[in-house]
Design a protein around this nucleic acid. Structure first.
Lengths: 191, 191, 191, 191
DNA sequence: AATGAATGAGCGTTCATTCAT
DNA sequence: CATGAATGAACGCTCATTCAT
């Protein structure tokens, strides 16, 4: 039932956008009564949150795998791999991503990315500690914070509004370069 | 009256967020009747657009000055100056920026930044042409596109959710470094 | 619920006239919420149309019976019978008739009578063909058109603003005479 | 000023229909302020009433002349003349007539015709007294009442929705025949 | 006299939420 | 458990009317 409702929510989001998302419509689309929706979700917000959480979790699954694989690679290759996986995952959730990032009141629901960012930041801290051990903690923290912004923003741009005349691969390459440059001040560390 | 209504809109946005922004509430907060609101604005959308336009114009004024000043500076200093001015301008419009960037359905109203980004991209093209003339056009375009994302995202983060334990100045420094690094592949060009 | 709402609509029409007919008022008068009204009617117009359609259908039912009975009678008696039935039916729907005929913007909703007139005209064509077969088609058409106006107008007058000092029966008699005279130019045909 | 406002009202009625008739619009169209409108007319209703009255008066002027001329003619010719003049006059006021008859809440403003009908009835009484002196007063009254309905309804139909395939002249002829037939029971009286 | 900015009750309509069945 | 009819506050917007200037 819950899955049915969340699937219906995604559909409605796809077809009508965030503004067209009403609980009655979701229930109708799911083929159940509104009453049932309110048995499984406290309110509309809860429904949206759950959808966001699930999309987030799905993205995180891929991300975790990518991060695991990345640690065994040279720095730049690892970063590149993570970016590519992230873009692919966001593409898969284009509907929810679009709705949540571009349409939904962020203040109300946050977006998919905070959890992704948290996970990413955690691993990035280790990455920086390994490759640039002499960096001061505060300095490292700031670089990581900025890098997270760069990463998510770049992946979103690549996913939702890719610039014309250039391949996605090249964009990911450039972003990877930028991130390595930004994260690791020591040129020697960059493999 | 127009100013009064726009000020009230900003207030309501501040207190209730985008979702709580209603024409009746704005009129009430402005101490006028709804009818008056509709004398000066065609509809709710027009009200929001006007607020956005004004904020945008105000940010652009500062930005233009900063860009003019920046061309006479060494590359990194110029970039830094522009970032600092942008952060200051966004801070001044924190309420509208938050509401428009983070809450408003982007599809409905766009946000302040597209216009800022456009202006910024234009000058950045020249900047890149001067400092890295050998860069291929498509490559340069992609770098600029990404750099715009980095710039706006960084300024927004610095303005709206600055990371703890580090000064704003240092964050701007780091961002400037990142941008120069990302835009100009030739190390010699970086002054 | 639908009946309740239509009854309330009739009441409001009676008490406040067409101009005073608002969806909120109808709902209140029906003792239900506005929301309920919109569960059963797409919009205000739909509500009005439904009321009109029902009144129209009810009048048409009687009219059809009367026409069926009339064909077996001598010409004048048949005409008279139809008129009497029509007056009785309109009386039964006095509220709706008044509102729709006399108050509603005709352009917006039409009124009850077009459907009545259409049905009446159809049978009248046969009546004329039988009793005055030598009449030219165009001439017959014009006579019928005028006769329809006379019929409806007379019935409306008899129903809504009967002249003083004379019985309804006598008015119907006179109208019947007039119609027979107007429809059938051949005196011999008039039984 | 009054004329200007009434002319503007007619224009607005023509262009936007009764539903689009607002005092602000009328004032704007007249090139004066709403305030001025309310100096010369007590309220919106008063404005409409005045327009109706004037149209009515204009029609009455023609009607009076026609009636004066008609008394010197044979019965049927006189009736025909009056009908022709009436149709012409209504055509001249098509905008107001349409709005008032077909769109305006009749209950609120009545229509142009009552005054016309009154005047017409008055003369018709004399006409009947001359041509059918033996008719009982109540009977004559009823016949006149019905004839008024026929007359106005026919003229309106001829003016606003003429049936296709037949000339206006023929329609007026038929109506005249009908009226004479209906008003004067004595065949000898019909010249 | 004339203006027109200002008013505010009221309109048609939506939709998150509840609760008797 | 599930239903879906019912709710009603709130929304965006209109327009006849007023009144300080």
């Amino acid at each position: 039932m819950i899955d049915r409702l969340l699937a219906a929510t995604t559909q409605v989001l796809d077809e009508r956008g965030y503004a067209g998302l009403s609980t009655n419509r979701v229930a109708e689309r799911a083929g159940v009564s509104v009453g049932s929706l309110y048995r499984y979700f406290a309110d509309k917000n809860d429904l949206i949150e759950e959808l966001r959480t699930r999309s987030s979790a799905d993205v995180l699954t891929d991300l975790t795998d990518a991060l695991t694989a990345a640690v065994a690679m040279p720095a730049r290759d690892g970063v590149r791999h993570v970016l590519a996986v992230l873009v692919a995952a966001l593409k898969r959730h284009r509907a929810v991503t679009t709705a949540m990032i571009s349409e939904a009141p962020l203040g109300a629901h946050g977006n998919i990315l905070p959890e992704v960012e948290r996970q990413l930041a955690q691993v990035t801290r280790i990455f920086v500690a390994v490759h640039a051990p002499h960096l001061e903690p505060a300095e490292a923290g700031a670089r990581i914070h900025l890098a997270m912004g760069v990463t998510l923003n770049a992946c979103l741009r690549i996913t939702l509004e890719p610039p014309p005349g250039i391949t996605e691969d090249r964009l990911i390459d450039l972003t990877a370069d930028l991130l390595v440059l930004g994260l690791l001040p020591d040129p020697l560390a960059r493999a």
